[in-house]
Design a protein around this nucleic acid. Structure first.
Lengths: 146, 146
DNA sequence: CCTTGTAGTCAGGTCACCTTACCAAAGATA
DNA sequence: TATCTTTGGTAAGGTGACCTGACTACAAGG
């Protein structure tokens, strides 16, 4: 019989695991010599092109307002990971461009993600991780539809 | 080859599904005639005893500070779902006690959770939902340990 | 009693968003 | 070409969900 606790546990569990992963990720990023970055800064690196991307593009891809995204960019710029340069093809626009350190973070991020995937596959089983992803996608689709 | 997007997708997916579920839950609670309640108010109903519980107990179980929890209680009290009464056994303490409407919410919550479980089991398969939970628990344990 | 610990509140701060209002440049239209 | 609308970005201010630090009222032990 499903109880309040049972199902709430699933919701809480989803939150915990997400936080666990984000935390672990940024712990490693930090340990690898890129301090100051917070989990929320991931929204920048996630879709950032190595040659620079327009703020509004990034904001839209992240599902955030331009203002909210711009704030994160300002933070990450202050930390020295990106710069804002005027877009040569659009006088209104500015390109968010990774600095040398920023490009390191981009690569580092990929490495750390690969590392985590490998560790989960080892500890839990690659096919179970795949199944997890599939089930989550189905639930998401179900909720989006219903 | 695991990419940045692949693994980030899993983190994002966890977040999306969690939000989906919380949203759906509160949509139904609202539809069932209990307006004003927000997802974050779940922290109160989650551990609230039908006869009342002490604020600090609830705060501790939710992993929140007393102050933060107290704010939620104030909100939910203003909505008329709980009251704060002095604890007859401890002059310092106050009991958070559900009102009649609050007790309805408690029951309603259980019903909605049961409903959701049933729907997922139907659409996705009970054993896959169980597997999801198990895998999440293992990852959580893994991260807590490592 | 008096000290120390605990329950709860108050004040104020932070973080990650949001809305409203605006400017400046681009593109469409007349 | 002058204007009108759309789009890229910023500024200012607000909100929700937390936090820390400082405080009061009561409890419990020596």
């Amino acid at each position: 019989m499903p109880t309040l606790a049972t199902t709430q546990h699933l919701v809480a569990l989803l939150g915990s695991v997400k936080e666990d992963l984000l935390e672990e990720m940024y712990r490693r990023v930090s340990a690898a010599g890129c301090p100051g970055l917070r989990p929320s800064h991931g929204c920048i690196f996630r879709f950032l092109d190595i040659d620079g991307s327009k703020l509004s593009e990034l904001a839209e891809k992240s599902g955030m307002t331009k203002q909210a995204f711009g704030e994160h960019v300002a933070n990450v710029e202050a930390l020295g990971y990106v710069t804002r340069v005027p877009d040569p093809e659009d006088g209104r626009a500015k390109l968010v461009v990774p600095t040398a350190r920023g490009r390191e973070v981009l690569i580092l991020g990929r490495q750390i993600f690969a590392e985590l995937e490998r560790e989960w596959a080892e500890a839990i089983g690659a096919e179970r991780i795949a199944a997890l992803r599939e089930t989550l996608e189905e639930i998401h689709a179900l909720q989006a539809a219903g």
